[in-house]
Design a binder for these strands. Sequence first.
DNA 1: ACGTCTTTGTGAACGCGTGCACAACCGTTC
DNA 2: GAACGGTTGTGCACGCGTTCACAAAGACGT
Lengths: 232, 232
Amino acid sequence: MSPHRTRRRIPDATVARLPIYLQILSAQLDGGTSNLSSEELATLAGVNAAKVRKDLSYLGSYGTRGVGYEVQYLVYQIRRELGLDHEWNVVILGAGNLGQALSGYGGFTERGYPIAGIFDIDPDKVDTLVGGVRVRPLDELAQVVAARSVSIGVIATPPVAAQDAADRLVRAGVTSILNFAPTLVNAPLGITVRTVDMSVEMQILSYHEQRRVAAASSLRSVQADGSRNQTA
Amino acid sequence: MSPHRTRRRIPDATVARLPIYLQILSAQLDGGTSNLSSEELATLAGVNAAKVRKDLSYLGSYGTRGVGYEVQYLVYQIRRELGLDHEWNVVILGAGNLGQALSGYGGFTERGYPIAGIFDIDPDKVDTLVGGVRVRPLDELAQVVAARSVSIGVIATPPVAAQDAADRLVRAGVTSILNFAPTLVNAPLGITVRTVDMSVEMQILSYHEQRRVAAASSLRSVQADGSRNQTA
DNA sequence: ACGTCTTTGTGAACGCGTGCACAACCGTTC
DNA sequence: GAACGGTTGTGCACGCGTTCACAAAGACGT
Ligand SMILES: NC(=O)c1ccc[n+]([C@@H]2O[C@H](COP(=O)([O-])OP(=O)(O)OC[C@H]3O[C@@H](n4cnc5c(N)ncnc54)[C@H](O)[C@@H]3O)[C@@H](O)[C@H]2O)c1
Ligand SMILES: NC(=O)c1ccc[n+]([C@@H]2O[C@H](COP(=O)([O-])OP(=O)(O)OC[C@H]3O[C@@H](n4cnc5c(N)ncnc54)[C@H](O)[C@@H]3O)[C@@H](O)[C@H]2O)c1
């Protein structure tokens, strides 16, 4: 019926690791490595080899038994699966400390997420230049989103304005939101929201730190949780 | 034997949610709410009520049946559990875009993580002021860490320098590291490392975005994964 | 052509996290 | 003081993610 066969669902945990594999594989490719075993990739990614194989198996059978995986082909497959076969334009709301850092950061464009625009509600900020880009007023948001087919929006406003920012993004037509404000933002059904709260990360660290002191006598080490952190 | 009874281990998933509860409860306290049920807290945090109760039960039985939880007392208990009953000095390595944004961000000091110093390897950056703080040379790192009992270090250097930065932090005596460079950093046993890679977040978003387009006909919504993100 | 060596792909067991459901319990009212 | 509405704390079942372990399969040498 559909031109593409409906792809099977990839577990969230795997999706979260694919970018890490991709980054390692890209680096290996640049370094001239053309082939890699699950064992080697696992070591580089700091995970279990069986996990690597299972993760990659969700993409299909792209390895060769006795040999390993062809790096270039794997990179292509992961990129395709993550939707990186084309660029995703991004808008940023809030041109403060963080918004400016994000805007001036080359890593996003490099990885296929060019900044289509940065917006601020403050008239004093509007029309100033940050990282070579002009800060735009909010009333240009819908227009930019439509003109450049933006589907990802980043919230870098103060916490109190985060919900307002999210509402504006949704109204403008954005369907995925990356929220850096330490607040829960609500969005209608069908909109994906991810919140990255740096203070939460700090608090998780200090929990372990505090625990380490409390249990100074027991030598048992704290184990790492799922999302790419180690205590080793 | 020990003055404090050894506290039972709290699941990682719960530890990751405690800061969120704390933030909500603090806001409620400021707003004059003195009591809150698990149902209300669950709604505010966007999670299941049973999960809230189970999470809080790891701290002890601090609720009252038929009534709910006393906000002030709960705030105190969560803060204690997260090690927030005293301040944690933090050092930042790398005074670039991100390092400066972090340094100028009041939210960390507010939450009990004052910036004890920001360091850079570039002589041109050293001695400049960012957010009112002087950028220090790396050879002052060990001294600052010792003098101000710093146990948390933040890596905001380019990816290639991240491992070097981690090594310096460890040598200086830091035992917890928050790494913003998109690279795996290795640390000796006993050191906790958390990596926050913003590009990974973007890629997770675009995966869902790409998937949404592919499966335009099926109305099934993508479900959220564990770490505080919604698709609702 | 065949055997050996290496590595994949996956079935199966296990463990952790989530959510339901309910008994235990508190406060309040009559 | 007894009955009642409300909320906690938790036993239990379920599902997802991780890891082990091994058969299947390609590559290579003889
Ligand atoms: N700066 C950091 O390093 C850092 C670290 C962690 C988290 N955060 C979070 O990121 C967010 C931004 O932090 P910051 O330091 O850049 O704050 P900031 O105050 O420097 O900048 C916020 C900007 O958002 C603009 N703004 C306010 N309301 C807006 C709206 N409705 N729409 C669009 N723009 C609006 C303001 O004019 C301001 O320019 C905050 O929620 C903060 O908690 C920042
Ligand atoms: N800027 C962002 O918004 C952003 C977003 C996501 C991720 N990141 C990541 O954060 C890191 C920093 O990004 P940035 O944009 O601030 O980079 P940047 O190039 O602006 O700053 C890096 C700073 O680190 C310093 N440095 C280099 N080697 C060092 C060392 N060994 N010890 C101490 N300092 C050293 C450099 O002199 C420079 O000042 C990078 O790894 C980047 O990938 C940044």
